[in-house]
Design a protein around this nucleic acid. Structure first.
Lengths: 244, 244
DNA sequence: CCGCGCGTTCCGCGATACGGAACGATGTTT
DNA sequence: AAACATCGTTCCGTATCGCGGAACGCGCGG
């Protein structure tokens, strides 16, 4: 395992995660590396166009190069590609904010999103990573995972004290989700989310679709209609994927 | 300049650009590196979660990790952030496909796009890189660049024979663009694009907005209205950026 | 059954990344 | 104003770590 490569990616991750351009010393100390090492690697990243430095020995910030590379990956992603028309239809019939996501590790990653004309308050952007049990789509996928318990317990440990989250309660809820084939999440009091998994050929979830709407706009009848829309479209998408 | 780091990024670039998972040997030979070197670096990338390998010594493909990193960069990009409401308004008033882009080197990179209800034929996706002189927005930005000539000539060389492209014709057209403050492109016979630059504080272009529509839908009156919409909204966005 | 090409492993060599220390510039404190 | 702190950068001797040629095991097709 190349040490320099490992360090280079940690540095790039750090720089890209920061909201503002970072100082060399900050990077060095937060990664517990020597300034000279970080400097040399950053020069390499600058030479390759992944990072730019402000004039006169200033701070470092990432360029769009990283995004350009990443968007190639997304563009070729089978679930994201296949989901486009289904996501659009779900958007059309519900007229709410809809998302596609996939499970990665203990988290979901949002691949795409179509926002409602009247956007909801707390929205997660495409590309963001959220602990799976906190989202309707994530729960729908976890319900199909053999070792969902391990995931939920790890997440519980990670979120410990940061947020009210009881592993056993969530695991019990997952039973219901598995039985019904969809999940409803009200983590945020103002937002209701409905998610269902897109069944893959191996019986696991290839991904999930979800609909999120302001709580006040969702009466029981509307909720039922939304659940049906999500389920039907997920089923159709699963069939579509199966034919590939 | 760390050699291994440089190689690692070239390898990751190669893997992300490929439409399909790549074989180790293919990567090694296309980069003119030893198999053992590529193998070792790929193992590092796998360990870090940027690449996965198909089971049983199979091919390598990129994960969403790269995209996740990149989408952070995009999310914090000042032009992309600032453009969102202006792009939405341009979309609303024109009801066509609209894009934001920035100049990077000799190319434009599309940051975001809102597609029309009836999408146009040849569309470029967000994240893609296109030679600046080939797009209306790119031309609008080049018109403000001091050394636009150098850019156009490099692009002409790059596209040589691949496409009809005469540097002098384009440079003459840029004069008109500079004088009028907007560009109209009909590179593709079926699509008309109108672009204008978002003027930055330094007199150069911070970015550009453009509208693309099927040629048959654009009569002279509609074209004029579109030009006005793009110009007005670009001016307003420039003012907004100036106040930051 | 042999030969080919694949991904992987091994290993000795030496280039190269490493990190501590020093430097000049900048801006902050006393 | 002077002393100080901190920044990014440069230097350099050392040993580490990446390097690449060669060999291995495997699956496949001739």
């Amino acid at each position: 395992m190349d040490r320099a490569v490992h360090r280079a990616f940690r540095i790039l991750e750090t720089v890209t995660r920061a909201k503002e351009p970072m100082r060399l010393s900050t990077i060095a100390s937060s990664l517990e590396l020597q300034k000279s090492t970080v400097h040399r690697i950053l020069q390499t990243l600058v030479a390759m166009g992944y990072v730019v430095q402000e004039p006169n020995g200033g701070r470092y910030r990432p360029t769009l190069r990283t995004w350009e590379m990443g968007s190639n990956v997304l563009h070729d992603h089978p679930v994201k590609r296949a989901a486009a028309p289904f996501l659009a239809e779900l958007h059309r019939v519900t007229e709410e904010t809809v998302s596609v996501m996939v499970l990665e590790g203990d988290d979901v990653i949002y691949l795409d999103k179509l926002i409602a004309p009247r956007p909801i308050r707390f929205t997660t952007r495409a590309g963001s990573r959220v602990p799976a049990p906190l989202t309707a789509g994530g729960q729908a996928m976890l319900a199909l995972e053999p070792d969902a318990r391990a995931v939920v317990e790890r997440v519980a440990r990670r979120l410990q004290a940061e947020r009210a989250f009881d592993a056993e309660t969530v695991l019990a809820a997952l039973e219901t989700v598995r039985a019904r084939g969809y999940a409803v999440s009200r983590n945020n009091p103002d937002v209701v989310s409905v998610g269902a998994a897109i069944l893959g050929r191996d019986g696991r979830a290839a991904g999930a679709l979800s609909v999120s709407a302001p709580a006040e706009r969702i009466d029981p009848a509307r909720l039922e209609a939304t659940v049906e829309a999500v389920r039907v479209i997920c089923t159709r998408m699963a069939e579509f994927l199966g034919r590939l």
